[in-house]
Design a protein around this nucleic acid. Structure first.
Length: 668
DNA sequence: ATAGGGTTAG
């Protein structure tokens, strides 16, 4: 059109600007902006709105333009250009008029905050927000990046709701939350009421700050103004409640939506999975398919962690098949969750294979494979991968150090662990957190350096129960009752309801034959109403999960299972198996102790696996607590007798049993 | 003609 000599009018530019935004073409966008100024179209409301949206998008994506040197090419040079010979007298007139109207407008920064309508019954743009969340505020650097947007905004002769919503969204998405909230207040001064667009920019802010009371105020405002049936508000609320650990409220919001679109489905599925409601997440995923809503790429990265946590390898494989057929396997989010899923389901080889096939590795995918290797006891692979990551220029973060320290911990690599622990602070400026201290304490404790571990934890300003607990389990392994009592005391001081600590201490007493102390603790727990989750093991057979508790008689194949165990026990004893009753924590006769071991949940699951999974294939068991020493020995024998690989995931790590040996080398 | 929502590693 330009080549043909026709002059574009103000109807043309919004679409052209939008195209630049969608193409992420900063240079083109800026030159179109120049063109807009030359044609005097920069007074046009729609054109300015589109320009602000474009710049906001560039900035939120970190795309830099000419603002980098503090000078804005288009805006700073504008007046000269406006008065150049190219511009007609009429345009000059318009420009002067516009400048006058801006002068009458109070500059943004000087607006005094008067409560806008929205604040009549809402406090969600309250000043106090700045004080409580100061550390998250946008720094100067960030606000410089929003300069172009602000400049366009300030020069506009007239601003409508879209203008405000665009700037608010731009600020919100660039992490400048304070500014976004401030502009909502100022919007009220301009007699504009927040609408559903405004709210959908605010919800993610309160989600990020886990501020459910502000989030609920938005919900209330949405209901009063009939925005609560809006798709965008709906998913915003679902995400906000999920992030605030109020997933019941997310489910409620989801259920009363008049219709659900792909994103509301994905929001609720992700919300459930993030709140550990894995079965509910999977159920909703199936419902989504039933409702003929096609899963998108994000659906898979949301649902795969559920398979990983529940060790649903077969389901994970089916999803993987779908992912490949849909061509989603090059998505870095999906690939990382596949790596994690395969590793957590016991198949670290496939995890590594997928990782190696990825074109680009980001820190999350590196961390996923490093943690995968760590859980399977492949510490040297984990360390080598960590070094490859560093050499490849990917900066490890907090979580990456958790992963590499976990690897050291499971292999007893004390020197390496200290090296990483120190490097974290010295080379990367990351302050070690609870997880890192827990990993170090775990490592020292497991290696028998209980005093050193005690000293390390005591050096913490406010040690929490979870860190002390690692030392308590080490006390159990090394049968140190005195230290255990000391540690337990520390735990109960900060966390008097810590179920795990009561159980551990009671078991430590029992192992030391101090039955009275053990039962005293059990009685105390009963009186206090502290209940523990029952120990159980589960196994996936033909897409169905079968769960067992100790001494379980409820399974349909119960008779066959116990028959199998009986036959196995005879063969095991022939091979030299002697039951180790030292970890039976009930004060009963020796024979009864053997009976108790015999019915441990992992053995029932393994026996069921042997009779229901084809010969030659790996048997995969998941357990919710640490394997007991006797089951560990027994499983070694079983793997040899039935000539099958048995993989057990306990709450701590993986054990691969094969030919009478375990991959952990009995160090765990 | 212009503005808003969902994802991976602990």
């Amino acid at each position: 059109m330009r080549a043909s000599g026709k002059y574009p009018d103000h109807n043309v530019f919004p679409s052209v600007v939008k195209s630049c935004a969608l193409l992420l073409d900063v240079k083109l966008g800026e030159s179109v902006h120049g063109c807009i100024i030359r044609f005097g179209m920069d007074y046009d409301l729609y054109t300015c709105n589109a320009l602000m949206n474009m710049y906001a998008k560039f900035h939120s994506l970190g795309l830099s333009g000419s603002h980098g040197n503090g000078k804005h090419k288009m805006l700073d040079g504008m007046s000269e250009r406006m008065f150049s010979s190219e511009v007609s007298g009429e345009l000059i007139h318009k420009f002067e008029k516009r400048m006058m109207s801006i002068d009458q407008n109070v500059s943004l920064n000087k607006v005094k905050c008067v409560s806008p309508q929205i604040n009549g019954n809402s406090e969600f743009t309250d000043r106090s927000y700045r004080e409580t969340h100061d550390s998250y505020m946008g720094e100067e650097e960030r606000s410089a990046r929003m300069d172009s947007v602000r400049k366009v905004f300030e020069m506009m002769p007239r601003r409508d709701l879209v203008s405000w919503n665009t700037v608010i969204a731009g600020n919100a998405q660039s992490g400048m939350h304070e500014e976004a909230l401030m502009m909502v207040r100022e919007m009220g001064n301009a007699n504009l009421k927040p609408d559903s667009f405004t709210l959908s920019s605010l919800l993610p802010i309160f989600a990020e700050y886990v501020d459910v009371s502000k989030g609920k105020e938005i919900h209330g405002y949405a209901v009063r103004n009939c925005f609560d049936e809006d798709f965008f508000i709906g998913s915003g609320l679902i995400v906000m409640y999920a992030r605030c650990n109020r997933v019941e409220d997310s489910l409620w919001v989801f259920s009363i939506l008049p219709r659900q679109d792909a994103i509301s489905w994905n929001s609720i599925i992700a919300g459930c999975v993030q709140n550990n409601l894995y079965d509910e997440g999977l159920r909703l995923f199936q419902q989504m398919l039933k409702a003929k809503v096609k899963p998108r790429q994000v659906s898979f990265s949301s649902i795969l962690p559920a398979c990983a946590h529940l060790t649903k390898l077969n389901l994970g494989k089916q999803l993987h098949g779908y992912i490949i057929r849909a061509g989603f396997d090059d998505n870095v989010f999906i690939a990382s969750s596949l790596v994690d899923m395969y590793a957590k389901c016991g198949n670290v080889k496939v995890a590594r294979w997928i990782f190696d096939k990825m074109e680009l590795h980001d820190m999350v995918s590196w961390t996923a494979i490093i943690m995968g290797c760590a859980l399977h006891g492949h510490a040297h692979d984990a360390i080598s991968l960590f070094e490859q990551m560093e050499m490849g220029g990917v900066r490890p973060n907090y979580v990456a150090f958790v992963a590499v320290l976990t690897a050291c911990s499971h292999a007893g690599l004390i020197d390496e662990a200290w090296r990483y622990f120190n490097s974290m602070t010295q080379n990367y400026g990351i302050a070690p957190g609870l997880e890192h201290f827990a990993a170090m304490a775990d490592l020292l404790g497991r290696a028998g350096k209980l005093d050193e571990a005690y000293k390390l934890i005591s050096s913490l300003e406010r040690p929490v129960g979870s860190v002390w607990s690692t030392l308590l389990s080490a006390c159990r392994v090394h049968k140190n009752v005195d230290l255990a009592e000391k540690v337990a005391k520390e735990i109960f001081e900060v966390d008097p309801e810590n179920v795990g600590a009561y159980i551990l201490l009671s078991n430590i007493y029992a192992a030391a034959q101090r039955w009275r102390d053990a039962s005293k603790l059990r009685v105390f727990m009963k009186v206090k109403g502290i209940k523990k989750n029952p120990a159980c093991s589960w196994i996936e057979v033909k897409n169905k999960m079968h769960a067992f508790v100790s001494g379980d008689k409820s399974h349909p194949s119960c008779d066959k299972i116990y028959e199998t165990l009986k036959v196995l026990l005879e063969k095991m004893e022939q091979e030299g198996y002697v039951p180790d009753t030292s970890e039976v924590f009930h004060d009963v006769e020796e024979e009864q102790k053997k009976q108790l071991l015999y019915g441990h949940s992992e053995r029932l699951a393994i026996a069921f696996g042997i009779i229901s999974i084809p010969a030659g294939t790996t048997i995969r068991i998941t357990k919710n607590i640490r394997m007991c020493a006797d089951c560990h020995t027994a499983t070694k024998f079983i793997s040899k007798i039935v000539e099958r690989e048995i993989v057990v995931r306990d709450n701590n790590r993986f054990h691969h049993f094969k030919g009478g040996k375990c991959s952990c080398g009995d160090y765990w």
